[in-house]
Amino acid sequence: MAFIQLKDIVVRYHRKQNVLKGLQLDIQKGELVSLLGPSGCGKTTTLRVMAGFIEPQEGEFHVNGKDLTKVPVHKRNFGLVFQSYALFPHLTVEDNVAFGLKLRKMAKEEIQKKVRSILEVCDLVGLEKRFPKQLSGGQRQRVALARALVIEPELLLLDEPLSNLDAKLRLHMRVEIKRIQKKLGITTIFVTHDQEECFSISDKVAVMNEGVIEQYDTPEKIYTYPKTEFVARFIGFENFICFQKQQPHCYMADNKALFITDMDIEQTTCKGTIRPDDILIKEDAEGGNVVTGTIQVRTFLGKSYQYEVKTDLGVLVVNAASERIYETGETLHLQLPANKIILV
């Protein structure tokens, strides 16, 4: 049985519409799982259900076999880091971090020891006596993390903790978070809408769309084998072509052209999709999986050029290296390699 279980969670705010629509999620102990999805899809709401700020209208939330759905926030023992860090402005770094421990009626020496060791882990030594106002963004972020970690939470919840930092610091902090999380072995949920950040840090990724999880897999699986059109689009696939299944590994497009694919699925109608980077530009129309069209728009992307090519399958988007530049109006032969076509 999974360590953390969200079972058919339904949440609606004041209006009738459900924000979470029967959300399911199982998380193993010690894993770092990201919730990835567009703005407004319900990531924060899911996190707030786990933290206990929202009681779901339906469904249950279990940790380690215990039903916590109705347990109040302060009895859950979870660590939480907000996007705004939410440090206590009237307390020093040291007192911010010690706040949770003091409530646990621990001996003074023990509190001091724990605070010192977590400050070391989070690289905050020397800042103990400062107030939050006197810290940089990255330092505040680490204090918030230390404060959440020092209580040895069963579950660590991070809601877009890096989105207020500049690009360089983000990169650094995500490595830090991963390091600390692995070192302490804390089960962690990380909310983000940045896919690179999410792929680099997570053991598993749950891609959310409109209140449900569309796909839950390792980052590699999600990157290479998105299961639905929504997931595929969200992680950079374009060029969706309607397919009719003819026989295994052989699909027919609307214009009767046949495509051979390495992948195969049960349904008779589906969509084939391919990343703009994976389409090859050929000299002639020889070979299988080739379509021909004319260039409508050319865009310079730096490392490559992007072409929008009008074919009888619709407009295909292709990225090609800038060594050979094609002009708008030119005819292109595009090959869709069988091993790069994903069926959704």
């Binding site: 206990g52 700020f53 926030v73 302060h74 979870f78 939410a86 440090l87 206590f88 402005p89 209580i151």
Partner: peptide, 15 residues
Amino acid sequence: DFSIEEVAWTLGCNK
């Protein structure tokens, strides 16, 4: 910022 109040709850402080 009421989120600091929420954080305090998660740290084990009742309302």
